[in-house]
Amino acid sequence: MKIIKIMLLLVLPVITLGQEFKFKAEIRLKNVNPTAVAYLVQNYRWTNAKIVDSAVAVNGRFTFAGVRDEPERLAIVLDHQGSHKLPVHQEADVRELFLEKGTIRLVGTDSLKTARIKGGSVNRDFQRYHLTVRKQVEAFQEPMRKMFEKADHDERSSTEFQHKLITWFDKTNAYNDSLTRLFIAANPASYVSWSLLQQVAHNDFDASHNVDSFKKLSGEVRAYPSAVQLAAYIQDQSAISVGNLAPDFTQPDTLGKLVSLADFRGKYVLLDFWASWCGPCRHENPNLVQAFHKYKNRNFTILAVSLDGASQREAWMNAIHTDGLPWTQVADLKGWKNEAAEQYKVKSIPSNFLIDPQGKIVARNLRGSALEQYLAKFLD
């Protein structure tokens, strides 16, 4: 009923906020090469980066204009040499902003990075986020940056140094996410908070804390088209949300014996959806192995459902052996059409559900140390 009420609350604002608006992004740099080219880019520095538009200077100004139905976070990249090739190196002149209703101006001397942004409320909030959260994260990273600069080639290549880098990288990400979530909680009426929530959720809106954060956004923000889509997704997921009984299912194990989720009633069970071809799943498996061996004698086990297809049975068996997975494995070998996966509305993997001895879902999509933290709460 709560989800239905949320959907009803969204209906009226959609009528106004869902309307299209015109935007203009204008860049004015005093000392810029006349042949320079500016690019408007989605997902800059990612493998799926996409050039949305490009512009050459006219009377010293680069101008982008168009129509949107909600603000959009993009990067402006400046090719100073006019090579007509998108610069993707570390030193590229890049500036992130939001396309929003009205005119956004970047005014500076010779670089986007140091230009001042003049725009509406969305860009003002985004700049405020940069001046608070980003500055703190950069300060947090500074000791590691200095250590890296002092290290010679041999030291940087050592296993110990690489481990330090990875550990610091993970801590930095966690610190960034925690500060970002504080910003989101403090600014529920800002579109920037919705954009940042999509970022820190890492597309994992099944997790209860992400759903809670989404529900706390203002009705105006949740009325934008992308947010309405998520509200519909949350409604679709409501049958398998935390607090509900986990739907039962039956599938054959590696020897063809039929196994049901109900067979594990009386234990804490991690229902894990994965596949042999899924890199993130394989990366997560060592964490599952560690948790399994730590708690297997304390009323805990794992039931894994593979999304491998019929032609991938051998790869599935090899992955179980290679990763050392001692728990029960089942699959109907229908790939993404696995009946249990469809029943649990699995859209991406790895995906998991922690189920208590009474068959109730108590947590979803636990990654890394989060699984052990939950198990410690229930079993230690």
Rank of each mutant, 00 (worst) to 15 (best):
K113E: 13
A376I: 01
M317T: 04
A151Y: 08
A291F: 11
K118C: 00
K171S: 13
D152P: 06
L8V: 01
D53L: 03
M317E: 12
S348I: 03
G309D: 14
I104E: 07
G120F: 03
A92G: 06
R134D: 13
F353N: 06
S208P: 03
H130N: 13
G219M: 10
E72M: 07
P247H: 04
V94A: 04
F98M: 10
K30F: 13
T328V: 15
N365S: 13
A185K: 10
K146P: 01
V14F: 14
T172R: 15
N33V: 08
E314R: 11
Q358L: 05
K2C: 02
A49P: 00
S238Q: 06
Y224S: 02
Q235T: 06
S158E: 12
F169W: 14
G120I: 01
Y191E: 02
A227H: 03
M1L: 13
Y344K: 01
D263Q: 15
F183R: 02
P188R: 01
N59G: 12
T103L: 14
K30Y: 11
L307W: 04
S226C: 07
N210P: 01
V14K: 06
S121K: 13
R128P: 01
I117S: 07
N244C: 01
D170S: 06
K337Y: 14
T132I: 08
K118Q: 14
Q290D: 15
E220R: 03
Y191V: 09
G120C: 05
S121E: 15
D152Q: 05
I240M: 04
D263I: 05
L106M: 14
R61N: 13
F62D: 08
Y268K: 02
E91C: 04
G359L: 05
T103Y: 02
